[in-house]
C-alpha cells in the first residue's frame, strides 16, 4: 500500500510540473508585460523599468521559471499587486468562509441527492420518473445567475428573511450569512447530482446479482438499500471526492453576489484587476488540491470496492 502511495505521489510530479509550466507560460509569456498595468495611466519609462526590476520580469524567461518554481515550493508568491497583501495571508483568511459555504453544501447535496436518486430509481419508467427528469432538466437549464439574482432579490431584499450581503466570522457567519447562499447553491447543484446518481443506481439495478437477490426472496426495499446502494456507492463516493476542489471555485458566484470574503471572490477580483500573483497562486494550489483529492478518491475506491487491487 505504501508502495502504491509512493508511486502515485511520484506520478504527481510530472503533472505538477506541467501545471507550473502551463501557468508560467500563460502569465509570463502570453500575458505580456504587467508593468504597464501596474504603473497606472500616467507613467514614465523610469517607473516602468523600476517596476520591471522589482517584479523580476526583466530577467530571461528561464530564470523567471526558476523563480516561479521556487515560489511554488515555498508557497511564497509575494504580495498581491493590487492590495500589497501577502498572498499567503490572503489564502489563510479567505479559506475559512469558502469552506463554510462548501462543506454544508457538499454534505447536504450528497445526502439529499442519493436519497432522491434512490427514490427516483425505485419508480423508474413511470410517469413520476419522466416528470422528474423534465423537472431536473429544466432546473439545470436555468442559469446559476438567475437563481442567485432572483433568490437574492426575493428572499433577502423583498422578504427580508436573510441578509442581502455580508459576512461575519465565527459561528454567526455560518448561521446567519451562509444559509441563503447554501440554499441557492443546493438548488442549483441538486438537479445534476440527482441525475448523475440516478444513472449510477439504475446501472446497478440492471445487474444480474439483483435478480439473484430477488430470487432469494429479498424485499424490494432491501434490494435497493442494501444490495444496490452498496454497489452504487462506489461511483458516488469517488465522484464526491473528486469534485471537491472544483467546488472551491464553483462557489465564486455565490461569494461575489453575497460579498462573502472567500477564495472564489478573490479570484474574480484578481482577474478584474489583473492581479497575477493571486491568480497564479490560486491556480497552482487548487491544482495540487485536485491531485491530492484524486488520490484520496482512488484510495476510497479501493476501500469501497473489494474487486479493486491497487498494485
Amino acid at each position: 500500500m505504501s508502495f502504491y502511495l509512493l508511486r502515485r505521489v511520484l506520478q504527481m510530479i510530472p503533472t505538477l510540473f506541467g501545471v507550473i509550466l502551463l501557468v508560467f507560460l500563460l502569465f509570463s509569456w502570453v500575458g505580456g508585460d504587467p508593468a504597464y498595468v501596474l504603473a497606472g495611466k500616467f507613467s514614465n519609462p523610469d517607473d516602468i523599468a523600476n517596476i520591471r526590476r522589482q517584479l523580476g520580469v526583466d530577467q530571461p524567461l528561464l530564470v523567471q521559471l526558476g523563480i516561479f518554481i521556487r515560489q511554488v515550493l515555498t508557497f511564497d508568491f509575494g504580495n498581491s499587486w493590487a492590495t500589497q497583501e501577502p498572498v499567503s495571508h490572503i489564502f489563510a483568511t479567505r479559506l475559512g468562509p469558502s469552506l463554510a459555504l462548501m462543506v454544508p453544501m457538499l454534505i447536504l447535496e450528497t445526502l439529499l441527492g442519493v436519497t432522491l436518486a434512490l427514490a427516483v430509481a425505485y419508480v423508474r419508467d413511470s410517469w413520476i420518473d419522466r416528470l422528474l427528469t423534465l423537472t431536473t432538466t429544466t432546473a439545470m437549464s436555468i442559469s446559476l445567475l438567475v437563481y442567485i439574482i432572483v433568490g437574492q432579490y426575493v428572499f433577502a431584499y423583498l422578504l427580508g428573511w436573510f441578509p442581502v450581503q455580508g459576512w461575519a466570522t465565527g459561528g454567526e457567519g455560518w448561521v446567519r450569512f451562509a444559509v441563503l447562499p447554501v440554499l441557492l447553491g443546493l438548488a442549483v447543484s441538486l438537479a445534476p447530482a440527482i441525475r448523475l446518481y440516478r444513472t449510477f443506481v439504475l446501472d446497478e439495478i440492471q445487474q444480474d446479482y439483483v435478480r439473484t437477490a430477488r430470487a432469494k426472496g429479498v424485499s424490494e426495499w432491501r434490494v435497493m438499500l442494501v444490495h444496490v446502494l452498496r454497489n452504487a456507492s462506489i461511483p458516488i463516493v469517488t465522484n464526491v471526492l473528486a469534485s471537491l476542489p472544483a467546488l472551491l471555485i464553483g462557489a465564486f458566484l455565490l461569494e461575489r453576489f453575497f460579498s462573502i470574503p472567500g477564495i472564489g471572490r478573490e479570484v474574480i477580483l484578481a482577474v478584474e484587476r489583473s492581479d497575477f500573483p493571486v491568480i497564479k497562486s490560486v491556480t497552482v494550489s487548487v491544482a495540487v488540491a485536485t491531485m491530492v483529492f484524486n488520490l484520496l478518491a482512488d484510495l476510497a475506491y479501493q476501500w469501497v470496492d473489494p474487486r479493486v487491487q491497487l498494485s
Partner: peptide
C-alpha cells in the same frame, strides 16, 4: 460471476 453480488 455476475449473479453474485461483487461487494459482499
Amino acid at each position: 460471476m455476475s449473479s453474485l453480488n461483487p461487494v459482499f
